[in-house]
Design a protein around this nucleic acid. Structure first.
Length: 305
DNA sequence: TGGCACCCTGACCTTACGTCA
DNA sequence: AGTGACGTAAGGTCAGGGTGC
C-alpha cells in the first residue's frame, strides 16, 4: 500500500475527505480491520437479506437481457476478455498478476453464477448495475476505509455476491471520482478566497489612503486636543485600524485570541465581519493555524461559503 | 413515443511509485 | 544495494444505461 501521499497543496489546503480517508487506508492495522469489519457487518447485516432476494432477481434479469440481445448489439460491445488478453500478451507481461486478474474477470472465483457467465461470457462487457443495497454497503465501507486489503476485498465481494475485481474497481472509481469532486470544490473555494482577498485588499488600500489624507490634513494633531483622527488605533490582533473604543463597542474584537470563529459564534459571541472570512484562525499572522484548520476540517470551512 | 444529448458509473488501461521479500 | 512482484494512485478512455428535453 502506498504511504499516505499528502494531497495537500503547497498552500496548505487539504483535499479533505479523500485525504483523511486515505490516511486510514494505510490499510491494515488490526484496529482498522476490526473497525472496518464492524462497519461491514453492521451495514451488511441489514442489507444482506434484501440483497439476496434482489441479487437473484438481478442475475435472472441479466441472463434474460443477454439472451434477448441481438447479435449486432453484442458485436458492438467491447469484448471484456480479449483486450485484457491482448494486453497481457502484447505487453509481454506474463506475470501471474495478469493471469489472476484474468481469472477473476472471467469469474473462476466461484462467486459468479452460471447466469452471469452466460451474460457476458460471450465476449460482451455487460455492465452490471449495482443494486441500491450493494451500493449502500460499498459506500458505507468506503466511508470507513477508502482502500481495501485483499481479505477485506474478498470478504466484501462474497457478502455482496460480486467478484473481488468488481469491488476493487468500484473502490478505484470511487476514489478517483471523490478526488475529482473534491478538487472541484477546492478550486471553487480558492477562487472565492482569492476574490475575497482582492476585496479585502481594496478595502485596506482605501483605508490607508484615508489615513494618509487625515495625516496630511492634520500634521500637528499631537499638539491639539484629541481629534477623531487621533483616537484611531490599530487592533493588535487583526491589525485593522479602528477607533479607540472599537473593542468596547464590539465587546471585543477577538474574545479569545486563539479561539476559532466557529467557537466564538457558537458561544454567542460576535465575530467581526472582517474576521469571518478566515475559517478558524483569528490570528491572521499565523498562517500555520489556517493550514491546520484547513487540513483538519476542510469541508467544514468550505461551508462558510 | 422515438431520438438525442448529457450524465453517471462500471470496467478497463497505462504509467509511476512505494513497499516488501 | 539491486530486483521482481505486488498494490495503489493518477489520469485517462470506453461504453451501457438512465434521464430530461
Amino acid at each position: 500500500m502506498m504511504p499516505h501521499q499528502s494531497s495537500s497543496l503547497d498552500l496548505g489546503l487539504s483535499l479533505g475527505g479523500l485525504t483523511s480517508q486515505g490516511s486510514l487506508s494505510s490499510s491494515t492495522t488490526s484496529g482498522a480491520i476490526s473497525s472496518w469489519a464492524a462497519a461491514l457487518t453492521s451495514v451488511v447485516g441489514d442489507a444482506m437479506a434484501r440483497r439476496d432476494a434482489h441479487a437473484q432477481h438481478q442475475h435472472h434479469a441479466a441472463a434474460t437481457a443477454a439472451a434477448a440481445m441481438d447479435p449486432d448489439h453484442r458485436g458492438a460491445m467491447r469484448a471484456s476478455t480479449s483486450p485484457d488478453s491482448a494486453a497481457a500478451l502484447s505487453s509481454g507481461d506474463s506475470s501471474s498478476k495478469r493471469d489472476r486478474e484474468l481469472l477473476e474477470r472471467t469469474g473462476s472465483g466461484g462467486v459468479r453464477s452460471d447466469e452471469e457467465d452466460a451474460a457476458d461470457g460471450a465476449g460482451g462487457r455487460k455492465k452490471l448495475r449495482l443494486s441500491k443495497d450493494q451500493a449502500a454497503v460499498l459506500e458505507e465501507c468506503f466511508k470507513t476505509h477508502s482502500t481495501l486489503n485483499p481479505k477485506q476485498k474478498v470478504a466484501l465481494a462474497n457478502r455482496l455476491g460480486l467478484r473481488p475485481r468488481q469491488v476493487e474497481v468500484w473502490f478505484q472509481n470511487r476514489r478517483a471520482r471523490t478526488k475529482l469532486k473534491q478538487t472541484e470544490v477546492d478550486c471553487e473555494y480558492l477562487k472565492r478566497w482569492c476574490e475575497r482577498l482582492a476585496d479585502e485588499n481594496k478595502r485596506l488600500e482605501k483605508e490607508l489612503a484615508d489615513l494618509r489624507a487625515l495625516k496630511a490634513a492634520a500634521p500637528s494633531a499631537a499638539a491639539q486636543p484629541a481629534s477623531p483622527a487621533a483616537t484611531l488605533t490599530m487592533c493588535p490582533s487583526c491589525r485593522r485600524v479602528a477607533a479607540a473604543n472599537h473593542h468596547q463597542k464590539q465587546q471585543q474584537c477577538h474574545p479569545k485570541s486563539n479561539t476559532s470563529v466557529a467557537a466564538v459564534t457558537a458561544a454567542g459571541g460576535v465575530v467581526p465581519s472582517h474576521c469571518q472570512f478566515f475559517p478558524a484562525a483569528v490570528d491572521r499572522t499565523a498562517q500555520s493555524s489556517w493550514n491546520a484548520a484547513a487540513a483538519a476540517a476542510p469541508l467544514v470551512t468550505r461551508e462558510l461559503f
